[in-house]
């Protein structure tokens, strides 16, 4: 039986090398492309009639849009809405990435790749910090000392706040990476039990597998949401300080 982490392997589909760098189009890139295509087809395609009375797909897209719009508005207020396209793209990208992992046989979970998540999280971190300085100038540093904190505690609080601020891209990306990796490893292992124990003995692990699969669908949605909503909250911190 294959190793439970074999499912995460990256394999080149179209080998490309530019200036000594391997930028091959891989299975991971293929699923990222698929996420882009599905999002685009759903949003642009479903809205092509611009129907006042929506059909089912259009209604779904609208509900999704309003959900993300509400999330951004509730967590970052009106100025956060400027960045709605980014959060919408990110949520859709991550959500589809998580859910593609649940496709049987062909599924691949590019959101289990720490480097992709870390790149996204780092982009959010750098952008949010830049927005913070752009909006507040040097007052942005006040973020590391909440106004309710007594001055005497500053030597303690400021380093803690700075460390917590700097650890954001790590916690953001590792959370989703760990969830996806652990979930899919577990699915693979329990699935291995089902096959290994045969028709009679495999029933119990099959039931467990069904339960875990359902749970994984929930985790897929929730973790994509968590990644996005935390990014929005970071943006809110930068826009409004504390």
């Amino acid at each position: 039986m294959a190793s439970p982490v074999k499912q995460f392997e990256v394999n080149p589909i179209i080998p490309i090398e530019v200036g000594g760098l391997d930028i091959s189009f891989t299975n991971s890139a293929a699923f990222m492309l698929l996420a882009v295509l599905v999002t685009t087809v759903l949003t642009v395609g479903a809205m092509r009639h611009r129907a006042v009375v929506p059909d089912r797909v259009q209604a779904m897209v609208e509900v999704f849009y309003e959900f993300v719009d509400n999330m951004v508005y509730e967590n970052a207020g009106d100025p956060g809405r400027r960045y709605l396209p980014f959060f919408f793209s990110m949520f859709s990208f991550l959500l589809l990435g998580d859910l593609f992992g649940m496709l049987p046989w062909v599924g691949y979970t590019f959101t289990s790749h720490i480097i992709i998540l870390f790149a996204l999280a780092l982009f959010v971190f750098v952008s949010v910090t830049a927005i913070g300085f752009w909006v507040h100038g040097l007052h942005f540093f006040r973020m590391f000392l909440p106004p309710s904190v007594p001055g005497a505690l500053a030597p303690l609080i400021v380093p803690i706040e700075i460390i917590s601020y700097l650890s954001r891209p790590f916690s953001l990306s590792i959370r989703l990476f760990a969830n996806m990796t652990a979930g899919h490893v577990m699915l693979k292992v329990v699935g291995g039990f089902v096959v290994g124990l045969g028709i009679v003995g495999g029933i119990l692990p099959l039931v467990v597998l069904l339960g875990i699969s359902l749970l994984e669908f929930g985790i897929a949605v929730v973790q994509a949401y968590v990644f996005t909503v935390l990014s929005v909250i970071y943006l809110n911190d930068a826009l409004h300080l504390h």
Partner: peptide
């Protein structure tokens, strides 16, 4: 090994 490719396509 694949970090560059992953980041590039991302």
């Amino acid at each position: 090994e694949w970090f560059v490719s992953q980041i590039f396509w991302l």
